[in-house]
Design a binder for these strands. Structure first.
Length: 512
DNA sequence: TTCCGACAGTGGGGTCGCAAT
DNA sequence: ATTGCGACCCCACTATCGGAA
């Protein structure tokens, strides 16, 4: 199959907003693909490379390359070149990658170049990723879409399912079962704004502490232990403590879901930055493990002793977990008897925050483990802080925000009467707000360089955020975590905005 | 007919490892 | 030795489509 066909379909998919039409377009293409093309065509149209990320970003892609006059590349040729490219490493590798990319782009038409650039940066922006590809695959093969989706969750990715389906038809889906050693997509949580709201929705429930660490799925089969992240990357080699803990349990075969986090000498959780730095260390694991030891803390059991627990109610899965894992290695929790028992839930949240954790997750006791879904039966509740900050500048947006000033630079007042930037945000804005702020900010613009417009510090905006973290980038030595706009405060003047001093005082645990 | 769940998009900050400077 | 890039952790929120209610 020619790459130009994929580029054309991708363009058509991007051009329609109807999901049903996107699905139909993908299904048509999947039916056209020859068996040998399938392992490439499917991930490409889902916006991903079969090789995963291969060290090519905007810099390696470089400046525009004159396009070829007509299409000639086949998808298999492209895949072969990218496979070679992914293996390039060592001195001179950046130039070699750039050379190979240049070769590829030079042989591509303009439409193909657009598609390839999107694919390589992970930004195809066609309004269709895995979920639409799954639907298209179901349509192309006559399989039930729910069955395809479930197989993909259990396989951990689309490709093996696609290959099996197109080769053997819908009955091939039966081969995809929960298997120890093969990671499945983890269940995710929705947000709720309060414990009352969460308990109101779920009724009788468990309230569990939410640890601010790294999500892990741990598989043990005898002496073999594998540890995977939320995106199913294998991080076993970086976390010897987790392997050891898994081997120490009495049962030999299981899949557990949990979090790894580092505790200090007094049992307080270290900051997310410290835990994440440790988990990210790959070179000198021994030293990293000595300086920042991590502990696995589990909250769910997917499989125990060969029994698949996914479809059991959470209450039963947790009973299995409690039999297998000793209490210190489990997340703290309390059972709540529904909205009449709200006090117990509130008290547990307060105690959890007191212990230095992030918040709680409220979980329905009847729900199965919805692999890969953001199930409505898990609701996270975290305290939200707010500040009134001053807009110092804004950046022009991309994609659907092209032509709109989008990303705001946020400042707090300093002692000398100036402002210190605490971070940026593009979140929380409605289309109407984007429209309004674009106009308003242009009125008070004083400078424009690159894609940043600097403005007079006159507009006050109310910002929600999850906490402070250390920063080497910003002048106050701290930055806001997950900042988002709530509303503009046209009733407030910049002199009434919050100061750096008050921000720091609100978070005594964080020091610049 | 209205409501709501699921998706995609739009980017934020930090840290690590590696290659280039 | 320092800097820049890319990958991958954490993530919130809005708009939209289309099936559920």
């Amino acid at each position: 199959m020619l790459l130009s066909r994929l580029a054309q379909v991708s363009q058509e998919v991007a051009a329609t907003s109807a999901r049903s039409r996107k699905t139909a377009l993908l299904a048509e293409l999947f039916r056209e693909a020859e068996p040998d093309d399938v392992p490439v065509v499917i991930p490409y149209l889902a916006g991903r490379l079969p090789q995963g990320r291969i060290g090519v970003g905007w810099k390696v892609l470089g400046d525009p390359v004159p396009p070829a006059a007509g299409p000639s590349l086949t998808v298999r040729e492209v895949d072969a070149l990218l496979t070679r490219l992914a293996k390039v490493s060592g001195p001179g590798s950046q130039a070699e990658r750039a050379r190979l990319v240049g070769e590829l782009l030079g042989a591509s038409t303009e439409a193909e170049q657009r598609f390839l650039r999107g694919l390589l940066t992970g930004e195809v922006r066609q309004g269709a990723l895995d979920a639409v590809a799954v639907e298209g695959l179901a349509q192309a093969t006559g399989a039930a879409s729910a069955d395809v989706r479930r197989a993909v969750m259990l396989a951990g990715s689309l490709q093996p399912v696609a290959g099996a389906l197109l080769a053997d038809g819908p009955q091939a889906l039966e081969r995809f079962r929960l298997t120890v050693g093969r990671p499945v997509q983890p269940m995710l949580a929705h947000s709720a704004s309060s414990v009352a709201e969460a308990v109101g929705k779920l009724g009788v429930c468990a309230v569990e502490e939410k640890l601010d660490g790294i999500r892990v799925q741990v598989h043990r089969d005898g002496d073999t232990v594998r540890v995977h992240t939320r995106t199913l990357d294998d991080i076993t080699d970086r976390l010897p403590e987790v392997t050891e803990a898994a081997r120490g349990l009495d049962v030999e075969r299981f899949i557990l879901d949990g979090e790894v986090i580092s505790f200090d000498g007094t049992g307080r959780p270290r900051s997310f930055q410290e835990t994440a730095g440790r988990v990210g260390s790959r070179v000198d694991v021994v030293t990293a493990a000595r300086e920042t030891p991590v502990s696995p803390v589990f909250f769910d059991a997917l499989s125990v002793d060969g029994r698949d627990l996914l479809d059991l109610p959470f209450a039963e899965r947790h009973a299995e977990l409690a039999r297998l894992v000793p209490e210190p290695m489990r997340v703290r929790r309390t059972l709540v008897d529904g909205p009449d028992d709200l006090e117990a839930a509130e008290r547990f949240l307060a105690e959890t925050l007191e212990r230095g954790h992030e918040g709680v997750v409220v979980k329905g006791l009847q729900a199965p483990y919805s692999a890969g879904r953001r199930g409505a039966s898990w609701l996270k509740v975290k305290p939200v802080h707010t500040l009134d900050l001053v807009v110092l500048a804004a950046e022009w947006g991309h994609g659907r925000r092209t032509g709109k000033l989008s990303n705001l630079h946020l400042g707090a007042r300093t002692a000398d009467g100036g402002f210190a930037m605490l971070g940026k945000t593009f979140k929380g804005m409605t289309d109407a707000m984007l429209e309004w702020q674009t106009g308003r900010l242009r009125e008070i613009a004083v400078d424009e360089s690159g894609h940043t417009v600097t403005v007079r510090p006159e507009l006050v905006v109310e910002i929600a955020y999850d906490g402070l973290q250390r920063s080497s980038r910003y002048p106050a030595g701290v930055t806001l975590r997950f900042a988002r706009v709530i509303r503009y405060r046209e009733d407030k003047r910049p002199e009434e905005a919050d100061t750096v001093e008050t921000v720091l005082a609100a978070h005594p645990e964080v020091r610049p």
